[in-house]
Write a protein that binds this DNA or RNA. Structure first.
Length: 820
DNA sequence: TCCTCCCGCCAAGCA
DNA sequence: TGCTTGGCGGGAGGA
């Protein structure tokens, strides 16, 4: 009996309403001897009507020995069709949206508690469900399969499932994350990105061997269903189709979110990865489309579970559908499932989650520490390899120490940054340890060698822990730069790994590492401010950074003072209002997912000029530096003082080329690019000239910061380069503060040799006087052809173009995420 | 036009 | 052998 009651009622209602004369109007119950037919869905109704109208189909129906009541139905429908012409009939049908899998899943989930009592097991009878939800069984399978992939249900027998609710979710996600990491999904994502970019430059070209081999390795890592002890996989076709099962696909899809950062995965990438694991060579369109269809199915269910949320990633090639993880954050690879819920979902509070977890653990994990998932045999080698790598990294002399939020809070402050922040914020800092301040001041302003170099041998491990991504960054380090022309100093934030090799060109330079919040955390903290997020590449990037982020943060011995400055900067950068609250949440974010943003940032210290540095420093100590404007926290790093209205862009270094928008107009002011370390570091492996170096030299010379002929060595050093800048990515604020007039300029260096890139983020302060147009020559921007090849500006191959009046415009390839 | 995904065919495999 | 399960892709609604 598949006739849904509700549908019958609806039909009756419609009939009664529209055709009172059509009798009988009641939908008769289907007799038991009704042949297997489509359920009583609107579409099947329509088909039935059509078949009724067709003699051929009708005769076929007759051959099927339609019962009298079935005939009645047909007659009724026929009657309905006759009287409800065309549009009217269509309008009487539920819309497509009302029949969506997501909605159906909502209904399904509403039937069962999120956290059922362990003593009372809920059983799911598919027949009942299909009947009550008025859907065909096939749809329920879709839902159940996804739920089963998360171990929210498990199959008990034919037609029968057990409802676990979300009890198992923490463990499942943990296991999935682990498998995802072991399966090198991050690298696969990067490879796909790389392929995409290579395809942009060479649409007809063969895919690189590296990419191919990477996928080759992914093929062998095909895995089976990830199980939890006690939640066994008892699919009917467990042996036959499980590798293509929606369950497995769902798990893989979830893994992609769990391993990538920010946790945004585009459907395209997910589909390619899923196909890649099956057979990359058959990456034909139909297969791709099919995967996409299935991913939509899965995504709908996951969305109903509020684990993901649909967003759109906008890049230069268009708007792409993607999904953002909104489920509980999963900490990496802790033996004991230590999870916490983020603020974005309807997930239970942490305490509840933990409680549930404990309950679930008792039920499902009698022996803790046991491997909690199955693994394809071919994966074991990969896992061992990764674990070895991880061991090497973790046993390095500079092994990281996790810094808790409380540590952040209690650490002393770094005076130089005080000048950038409003007095109210500084006031909070006055209570800090003066001794610590003095020590840091001394260190900051007097030390000619501000940053101890790390062991060069550590660099590869730090920047390329997985041996795949050359553009790995861990954190940023601020550098105070004097502005020779405008009298404005800047704090530039570098990655520690970059800072290791920095040599200063000004005695006043100093370096500090600074952690940056991950995009996800930022988003949650400043979601209203940050309405654009560069993603995908950054997503990939941070994923890669994760294994190394803490390493880099701990590379240097002055960890405590650095972290204190991190804390300070983050807290200082917060808006005056909600300061404490936001800092708290910020720190929570740091604590839970301390991630270092790989880009470099330039901070204008508009009131701390080079000429009166000492005075300024003194003022900084007293916390009365004449900065008048209100500084806001950056959603990116938490340390960049800039107006909230301008916090529109997050710079995330791309694994591949990431030509971002750069508008160089004559009306902005000087700024200095901050080189990400990746291209610089990676350049050491190549004998080719470093384009970044020559570019910076050019810039420095061009804008008069260094005399012509003076060359800054090809050393990853901060340069102070005034560049007229204007970013399209920043919405201009109507405010009048200096900082508000600052702009962010971003661009990427591309080195064809090491295939790395550097993302620059320049944030100049407002110009006091309009400057002459700064002609940016071709030397500055390199094309993929190499440092001495045809300049990007005149080559269209990379999409760049030069506008009139010396304005350089590089079409944006930055990705934005928009939520529906 | 393209995205989204409903729908149901039909094959694998279980009872 | 009938039924359950679920892969798969056509094609239509919706943006």
């Amino acid at each position: 009996l598949k006739t849904p009651l509700k549908q019958a009622a609806t039909s009756q209602m419609v009939l009664t309403e529209r055709q009172p004369d059509c009798q009988p109007l009641t939908t008769p119950p289907k007799p038991k001897e009704t042949p297997p037919a489509d359920p009583w869905t609107p579409t099947s109704n329509l088909k039935m009507l059509i078949s009724a109208a067709s003699p051929e189909i009708r005769s076929r129906e007759q051959r099927r020995q339609l019962s009298d009541s079935s005939s009645e139905v047909l007659q009724t429908k026929h009657c309905l069709q006759e009287h409800l012409l065309g549009d009217e009939y269509e309008k009487s049908q539920p819309s497509r949206k009302e029949k969506s899998l997501g909605l159906l899943c909502h209904k399904f989930l509403a039937r069962y508690p999120d956290y059922p009592s362990p003593s009372q097991k809920s059983y799911i009878c598919l027949d009942e469900v299909t009947e009550e939800l008025h859907v065909e069984r096939r749809r329920i399978y879709d839902i159940v399969n996804v739920l089963e992939s998360l171990h929210m249900v498990s199959r008990l027998a034919r037609n029968r499932y057990v409802w676990h609710g979300r009890h198992n979710l923490p463990q499942t996600l943990q296991a999935l994350k682990k498998v995802g990491e072991e399966n090198k999904y991050i690298q696969q994502i990067q490879m796909i990105k790389k392929r995409e970019y290579e395809h942009e430059f060479d649409p007809d070209g063969e895919r690189s061997e590296e990419t191919a081999s990477s996928f080759g390795s992914s093929e062998q890592s095909e895995m089976s269903f990830v199980e939890l002890p006690g939640v066994e996989f008892r699919a009917a076709s467990v042996n036959g189709r499980k590798y293509k099962s929606l369950r497995v696909m769902s798990q893989k899809f979830v893994m992609l979110f769990l391993v990538s950062t920010p946790q945004i995965v585009s459907l395209e990438v997910a589909a390619k990865i899923l196909i890649g694991e099956d057979q990359l060579e058959d990456l034909d369109k139909s297969k791709f489309k099919t995967k996409i269809r299935r991913l939509y199915d899965i995504a709908n269910v996951l969305s109903s579970l509020k684990l993901i949320k649909k967003v759109h990633v906008t890049e230069e090639r268009g708007r792409k559908p993607a999904f953002k993880w909104t489920g509980p954050e999963v900490l990496p690879n802790t033996q004991d499932t230590k999870l916490e819920a983020t603020s974005t979902t309807s997930s239970p509070p942490i305490s509840e989650s933990i409680t549930s977890k404990e309950q679930c653990s008792k039920a499902l994990f009698p022996s803790k520490g046991k491997q909690s998932f199955t693994r394809h045999s071919s994966l074991i080698k990969l896992v061992k390899s990764i674990e070895n790598d991880r061991r090497k990294i973790q046993s390095a002399p500079t092994s990281p120490v996790k810094i808790s939020a409380s540590t952040y809070q209690s650490l002393p402050v770094f005076p130089n940054t005080i000048a950038q922040f409003p007095a109210i914020t500084k006031h909070q800092l006055e209570g800090q340890s003066k001794t610590a301040e003095e020590m840091q001041m001394k260190y900051a302003l007097s030390s000619p060698e501000p940053v101890p170099k790390s062991e060069p041998s550590q660099q590869p491990a730090l920047s390329q822990p997985l041996g795949v991504c050359p553009a790995s960054h861990s954190s940023v380090s601020p550098v105070i730069l004097p502005h020779l022309q405008s009298g404005v100093s800047y704090a530039i934030y570098l990655h520690p790994s970059q800072a290791h090799t920095v040599t200063t060109y000004s005695p006043g330079f100093m370096l500090q590492p600074l952690p940056c919040a991950n995009v996800t955390g930022i988003k949650s903290n400043n979601s209203k401010v940050l309405n654009k997020i560069t993603t995908e590449e950054g997503d990939i990037q941070r994923g890669l950074d994760e294994p190394t982020k803490s390493l880099a943060a701990e590379e240097r011995p002055e960890t405590k003072s650095e972290t204190s400055q991190r804390c300070l900067k983050r807290s200082q950068a917060l808006p005056e209002t909600n300061l404490i609250k936001r800092r708290k949440s910020d720190e929570e974010s740091l604590d839970t997912s301390l991630t270092f943003f790989p880009s470099g940032y330039l901070i204008p210290l508009t009131h701390c000029t080079h000429s009166n540095k000492a005075e300024c420093s003194t003022k900084e100590k007293a916390g009365v530096c004449s900065l008048q404007h209100t500084a806001y926290s950056s959603p990116i790093t938490g340390v960049i003082p800039m107006p909230a209205s301008e916090l529109k862009t997050v710079n995330i270094p791309a694994f591949h080329i990431t030509p971002l928008n750069i508008m160089l107009s004559p009306n902005s002011i000087a700024a200095a690019p901050v080189l990400s370390n990746s291209c610089l570091n990676s350049s050491s492996t190549s004998s080719a000239p470093n384009p970044s170096s020559s570019a910076l030299n050019f810039m420095l010379q061009h804008i008069g910061l260094i005399p012509a002929g003076v060359q800054i060595p090809a050393n990853p050093v901060l340069q102070h380069v005034p560049v007229s800048s204007q970013s399209e990515n920043i919405s201009h604020s109507s405010g009048s503060t200096n900082v508000q007039e600052g702009k962010v300029i971003e661009f990427t260096f591309y080195s064809p040799i090491n295939e790395s890139n550097c993302l620059f983020s320049l944030q100049p302060s407002a110009p006091k006087e309009p400057q002459e147009p700064q002609a940016v020559t071709e030397n500055f921007f390199r094309t993929p052809g190499g440092p001495n090849t045809e300049p990007a500006l005149s080559a269209n191959s990379d999409g760049t173009q030069r506008t009139s009046q010396g304005t350089l415009y590089i079409p944006q390839r930055k990705l934005e995420v928009s939520e529906d």
